[in-house]
Design a protein around this nucleic acid. Structure first.
Length: 795
RNA sequence: GGGCAUGUGGCGGAAUUGGUAUACGCGUACGUCUCAGAAGCGUAUCCCGCAAGGGUUGGGAGUUCGAGUCUCCCCAUGCCCACCA
């Protein structure tokens, strides 16, 4: 075979063009074949373009999907754009271009960069969340949620980012700061659309058991986020109130130690108690201050507890009958439990700190260590329950004084954003008819073109200023009406996009039942672990809802999940324009080739690990491909006996490793095989063919070029994955270690199933072993055929 | 404070799940080729030791014929959550 130098710069674009022309990777339903739906979390087309970290997950799904195709499956491996939301809009604002224009430009750039890497995406299924034909169905799902009572208007105070000038969901707040811009979040009362995700809390939790192929750490963070806790609601009578105040506690067993009651500043009973208070002004000042304080002020680490006693009012401990004081304090959250607690300072750290500061009674009711003592133990000073174990009495005390309940930390999903660049919420307000959903046949409600799309900061969306868009007629009474001007949050479009790929051109349905039944669910899903508690919970929620209303046939959207480890910069920091340490894949492709980039990123280390980029190491991947290229010159007609067993092992390991996402060891095994072929200075044609096939998912261009050069029919990428004879995996002769007292003293080579006598005899040939017994008889011999011979000699 | 990970050569990492620790690759050194260099190729490369030998998987203890792997206690690092009663 003629040996020209390996030139990826020439051959890679040539093959990319040809694959596109021939539709090599087109997906089509085929009822006679098994399907494989392999999906990447789709990117926000940011203005910075791709850096080398982005493609890592995409390369992995590319390898998996190519492998599935070669196994004879029909493959759906699509790509699209999550282009609504704050990042896109903030980029547009900063660069003074319309978000639509910026997004179009960024998408073009992203797509060009991706195409250079040679992915097997079926671009005919490309989607874009900002396309009206796409958000038509996002709005449709919202209307369905509304129809089923899962979307409702709320006037509760919500998280507000003063910098982004919009409300935020609980999930968008990190340690009291806006997840996007790090500004401390404030509380603000705004009418908001809210999705009742809490109705699905128990199913989102329990159905994690249906997902054995998800990483345990992701499931665990979802469990923690949903935050189920079993406890009790107990009623405390309060003077001046007709109805008792209900508290939530997980420690009903400590009821006898409850020495005061605390209401959150948001608690509704405060208004009714106001007339009975002798320090009314002080209390309302405290409440007002708490309402204003940012989340960060309220939850700052080591912050002193604050609160005000409700003078002139008292409560009764239902177990002891004792009169106990009532406080309002912001360490009790209005949005969790019942917004009120019974304080047991002896057995709760927060109550203890508060009681110490305010000089309140601290009554021990559980025996154990120093106060505050939060563990279980024997009860004391607890009436009939004294002497019993605290854990064992929890249910009893709950039954006698209250009711068993389950609470969740998960909050309902605040779904309105006061920003321009999002899906309009399809609701119309009529003075006569109230909030009226836009009729399904009028969807999509298009986002109007505007001159000014900057956030107003008033709590109104920029859309409110566009009067000919806002003013409309009521679908019910045909009277004058106004449109909802808030838009949906960034997470809306991504909560169902995986369904659209199955049926991207469908104008009449979200997805046709036939196609959904063929492709759903996603078999392999890959993306960043940072989405564990947002995207992955929201998507599961919508999926379950769509299942409930009969649109979908599966309970869970993603069967198998893998989180991709970050590629950090060579300097150990995150890759970012800010630090000037970004490596652009275009440059790597231009210098070393796409195949070298792909092999390197898969070879770097375990897929889930965060690993620093190292251009020097990438050279090793390129060298490997150069050597493969040169191996083409050693191809001969007859197979090489020395390669039979290594090849079988390599075929098996590469296949197994791809399915298990162990790409690094798959590549090292191919390197081992290449070393063996080079040592043999020859490779048979059949062996060469098999080797090209298993390398093809990782390095699709070079393998295709060499495949065609060997005059094969068609593309290597649609060829059948090679098989091997399992008998070749079993070696007849094995080398095993010989140990004296567990320390290796030498090795012997013998038949795999050799007897213990034979092994011992062979071992005695080794001088170090013979010296090891030195006249003494072994007291014990452990022989594991094919593994180890360990001789125990008493000292 | 809580949860989840992770700790193996100069570096990225491997180890059939309790059986020869350091595969594969990077880097480095020497050699070869060359007028010379690059690339390529070859050899070596965990540590101590001239050697025989000895030691080594963050530290310590334990179980076992045998531990990187299992158990317990520390230490360190990373990520996520955090006044959730």
């Amino acid at each position: 075979m003629a040996q020209e130098a390996y030139n990826p710069q020439e051959l890679e674009p040539r093959w990319q063009k040809r694959w596109a022309e021939e539709g090599t990777y087109r997906s089509a339903e085929d009822a006679t074949k098994e399907k494989a739906y392999v999906l990447d979390m789709f990117p926000y087309p940011s203005g910075e373009g791709l850096h080398v970290g982005h493609p890592k997950g995409y390369i992995a799904t590319d390898v998996v999907s190519r492998h599935a195709r070669m196994q004879g499956k029909t493959v759906l491996h699509p790509m699209g754009w999550d282009a609504f939301g704050l990042p896109a809009e903030n980029f547009a604002l900063k660069n003074k271009v319309h978000p639509r224009v910026a997004v179009e430009k960024n998408i073009a750039r992203f797509k060009e960069q991706l195409q250079k890497i040679g992915f097997d995406y079926d671009w005919s299924r490309e989607i874009n969340t900002t396309d009206p034909s796409y958000y038509h169905w996002t709005q449709w799902i919202f209307l369905k949620l509304y129809e089923h009572g899962l979307a409702f208007r709320s006037e509760e105070p919500i998280n507000w980012c003063p910098s982004c000038k919009t409300g935020l969901a609980n999930e968008d707040v990190e340690q009291g700061r806006c997840e996007r811009c790090d500004t401390p979040v404030e509380k603000k009362v705004l009418p908001q659309w809210v999705l009742k995700i809490t109705d699905y809390a128990d199913r989102l939790l329990h159905d994690l058991e249906l997902l054995p192929k998800w990483p345990e750490h992701i499931k665990e963070s979802q469990r923690n986020w949903i935050g189920r806790s079993e406890g009790a609601e107990i009623d405390f009578a309060v003077s001046g109130l007709e109805k008792p105040v209900t508290v939530f506690t997980t420690r009903a067993d400590t009821l006898f130690g409850a020495t005061y009651l605390v209401l959150a500043p948001e608690h509704p009973a405060l208004a009714m108690l106001a007339p009975h208070l002798s320090n009314r002004a002080e209390v309302s000042a405290y409440v007002a201050q708490a309402a204003q304080a940012s989340e960060i002020d309220r939850t700052a680490e080591g912050r002193e507890k604050t609160g005000v006693r409700l003078e002139g009012v008292s409560s009764t401990n239902p177990a002891t009958g004792a009169q106990i004081p009532v406080y309002v304090a912001d360490y009790v959250l209005g949005s969790y439990g019942t917004g009120a607690i019974m304080a047991v300072p002896a057995h709760d750290e927060r109550d203890f700190a508060f009681a110490q500061k305010f000089g309140l009674l601290i009554k021990r009711v559980v025996e154990g260590g120093e106060l505050p003592y939060v563990d279980d133990g024997a009860l004391v000073d607890s009436g009939d329950y004294s002497g019993k174990e605290s854990a064992a009495t929890r249910a009893e005390i709950t039954a006698r004084y209250g009711r068993a309940v389950v609470k969740y930390k998960l909050r309902d999903w605040v779904f309105s954003r006061q920003r321009y660049w999002g899906e309009p919420i399809p609701i119309i307000y009529c003075e006569k008819c109230g909030a009226v959903p836009v009729p399904y046949e009028d969807l999509p409600v298009r986002l109007p073109e505007v001159e000014h799309y900057e956030p107003t900061g008033t709590g109104e969306s920029p859309l409110a200023a566009i009067s000919d868009w806002v003013n409309t007629t009521c679908p019910k009474c045909k009277g004058a009406a106004k449109r909802e001007t808030n838009t949906m949050p960034q997470w809306a479009g991504s909560s169902w996009y995986y369904l659209r790929y199955m049926d991207p051109q469908n104008e009449h349905e979200l997805v046709s039942g036939k196609r959904e039944k063929y492709w759903a669910p996603v078999d392999v899903y890959v993306g960043g672990a940072e989405h564990a508690t947002r995207h992955l919970i929201y998507a599961r929620f919508w999926h379950k809802f769509l299942y409930d209303i009969g649109i979908l046939s599966t309970k869970e959207p993603f069967t198998e999940l893998h989180s991709v480890g970050l590629i950090i910069a060579e300097d150990g920091r995150k890759m970012s324009k800010r630090f000037g340490n970004v490596v652009n894949p275009d440059d790597i492709v231009a210098e070393y080739g796409a195949d070298a980039l792909r092999v390197y990123e898969m070879f770097m280390g375990p897929f889930e690990n965060a690993i620093a980029w190292n251009t020097q190491s990438l050279v090793g991947a390129r060298r490997f491909l150069d050597r493969v290229w040169r191996l083409a010159g050693m191809v001969q007609e007859e197979d090489v006996p020395a390669l039979a067993s290594p090849l079988a092992k390599t075929i098996q390991k590469v296949g197994d490793d791809i399915r298990a996402f162990r790409f690094n060891t798959a590549i090292s095994q191919m390197m081992i095989f290449l070393n063996a072929a080079e040592d043999a200075k020859a490779i048979g044609k059949g062996e060469w063919r098999a080797f090209l096939k298993i390398l093809a998912p990782f390095a699709p261009h070079i393998t295709e070029e060499l495949w065609y050069a060997s005059l094969e029919e068609g593309s290597v990428h649609t060829a059948a994955w090679p098989t091997f004879d399992p008998a070749l995996l079993v070696e007849d002769e094995v080398e095993i270690a010989v140990q004296i007292n567990g320390k290796t003293r030498g090795t012997i080579t013998l038949a795999r199933d050799a007897s213990e006598e034979a092994a011992l005899a062979a071992a005695k040939e080794i001088p170090a072993i013979a010296a090891g017994f030195a006249g003494r008889a072994p007291s014990r011999v452990i022989y594991v055929p094919g593994r180890i011979l360990n001789i125990v000699v008493e000292k």
